[in-house]
């Protein structure tokens, strides 16, 4: 095998993608050929440089994706539930036709009145639609609430009714229960209800040993619009303040969070364990920080690390 052929085969050789016989030929050649060995070294160097460039998804992104996906899947299931309700409707209609007999010919006004009476029955029927599994042995159920969203009369004299349903389930269990944790993790991201988010984060904050909970807390610190939620999440991260993913988010808070209370909490956590790698960030921050307490803490931390307060 000559140098030209070896040079062409080196990337595949490096990735172990050559047949064994060809691999042996290359190794024989490399033993006696310095330029080709240098070529292999360059291939290794390229791989090392590119290894360093591998991106890690930002902290919390995976948990966020999972949450959004399951929400979308649940939304996809909704039409199926409506179809199942629609299938139940003709059956009920037949039942009422038999019951009401001749009165059925005044079907328009009767249908309106019957609708109210049917609401409960239809809701009971649609309850048969598949639901997400409940945590074993910890659930109880209240009656179904339903609301008619649209009524569509058809030429045949039938009527199509779209019904929105809300089920309230009471679920109880220990904080170590995975299903309970999953519900709380979902609630911690419920955009519509900051009160529920504060409560959920508060309950989960002592469970930050779990990767998922930690991811949620980091996400809440970085992105939750409510400062109360961000503060609770910071509390949960306190024992992990020395870890790189937490420190990165704390630096982000100091750079971007507009709430001084949150920044104070972040600087306290960050400076509790001074770390030389933060010097650059702290020097940058001290120039732009307008809260005197936070600025003082940054200056103290820089002094502790024997670093200058300004950048030159």
């Amino acid at each position: 095998m000559n140098c030209e052929k070896v040079a062409k085969a080196i990337p595949l050789y490096f990735y172990g993608e050559l047949p064994l016989a060809e691999e042996e030929q290359i190794e024989d050649h490399l033993e006696g050929c310095a330029p080709c060995r240098a070529e292999l070294e360059r291939q290794k160097a390229l791989a090392q440089v590119l290894d360093r460039r591998e991106l890690e998804p930002p902290v919390g992104l995976l948990a966020e994706c999972r949450h959004d996906l399951m929400r979308a899947v649940y939304r996809e299931e909704a039409p199926a539930r409506e179809r199942s309700a629609a299938r139940a409707w003709p059956m009920l209609q037949e039942g009422f036709r038999a019951l009401l007999g001749p009165v059925w010919r005044w079907r328009t006004p009767v249908a309106g009145a019957a609708l109210l009476a049917l609401g409960f029955v239809a809701a009971r029927l649609t309850q048969q639609a598949p639901m997400a599994a409940l945590p074993a042995g910890v659930a109880s159920e209240t009656p179904v609430l339903s609301m008619v969203r649209a009524v569509q009369p058809e030429a045949s004299g039938k009527v199509q009714i779209a019904v929105d349903e809300t089920r309230r389930r009471i679920v109880s269990g220990s904080l170590q229960d995975r299903q309970i944790q999953r519900l709380l993790l979902a609630a911690a991201r419920d955009e519509s209800n900051p009160g529920v988010r504060v409560e959920s984060v508060d309950l989960l904050k002592d469970q930050a040993l779990s990767r998922e909970v930690r991811g949620m807390l980091l996400y809440a610190v970085a992105r939750d619009p409510n400062p109360g939620v961000r503060l609770k999440a910071l509390e949960g991260l306190k024992p992990y303040a020395a870890e790189p993913d937490v420190r990165k988010v704390l630096a982000q808070v100091l750079l971007k969070d507009d709430n001084p209370g949150v920044r104070i909490q972040a600087i306290d956590m960050l400076t509790a364990k001074p770390d030389d790698s933060m010097v650059g960030v702290l020097q940058h921050l001290v120039q732009k920080e307008n809260n005197s307490y936070v600025r003082r803490r940054i200056e103290q931390a820089l002094e502790t690390m024997n670093a200058s307060v300004g950048t030159f």
Binding site: D276, S277, G280, V281
Partner: peptide, 9 residues
């Protein structure tokens, strides 16, 4: 963004 910040040193 943040890695760059910390590399100022």
């Amino acid at each position: 963004e943040f890695e760059e910040e910390s590399a100022h040193a």
